[in-house]
C-alpha cells in the first residue's frame, strides 16, 4: 500500500516536473528563435532608420514580427501549466 501510494506521488511529481520543464523549454527555445530573427531584422531596421527617419514606424513593425514566435511559446507554456 505504502509503496503504491509513494509511486503515485512520485509519478505526479514527475509529471508536474516534466510539465514545468516543457513549459520552460517552450518559452526558452522560442525566445532564442525570436532573438535570432530579431537580430537580423533589428540590424537592418536600425540601418534603414539611420538613413531615413520616416522608416522608423515600418522598421519597428518588422522588428517585432518575430515576437509572435515567443508568444506562441508562452501560450503553449500557459496551457501546459494551467489547463
Amino acid at each position: 500500500m505504502a509503496i503504491e501510494s509513494l509511486t503515485v506521488e512520485a509519478a505526479q511529481a514527475l509529471a508536474s516536473g516534466y510539465t514545468a520543464i516543457g513549459a520552460g523549454l517552450a518559452v526558452g527555445l522560442t525566445g532564442i528563435g525570436t532573438g535570432l530573427g530579431e537580430m537580423s531584422i533589428g540590424a537592418a531596421a536600425v540601418g534603414a532608420t539611420a538613413e531615413d527617419r520616416g522608416m522608423f514606424g515600418l522598421a519597428l513593425v518588422f522588428t517585432v514580427l518575430p515576437e509572435t514566435i515567443v508568444i506562441f511559446g508562452l501560450v503553449v507554456a500557459l496551457l501546459l501549466l494551467f489547463v
Binding site: 540590424a43 537592418a44 540601418g47 538613413e51
Partner: peptide, 20 residues
C-alpha cells in the same frame, strides 16, 4: 559581433542607393 554589423551597413547602402 556576428552578422549584425554587415546587415546594418548593407541596409544603409541600399537605402542610400535608392536615394540616388
Amino acid at each position: 559581433s556576428g552578422t549584425a554589423p554587415y546587415i546594418y551597413v548593407s541596409t544603409r547602402m541600399r537605402v542610400r542607393k535608392a536615394k540616388l
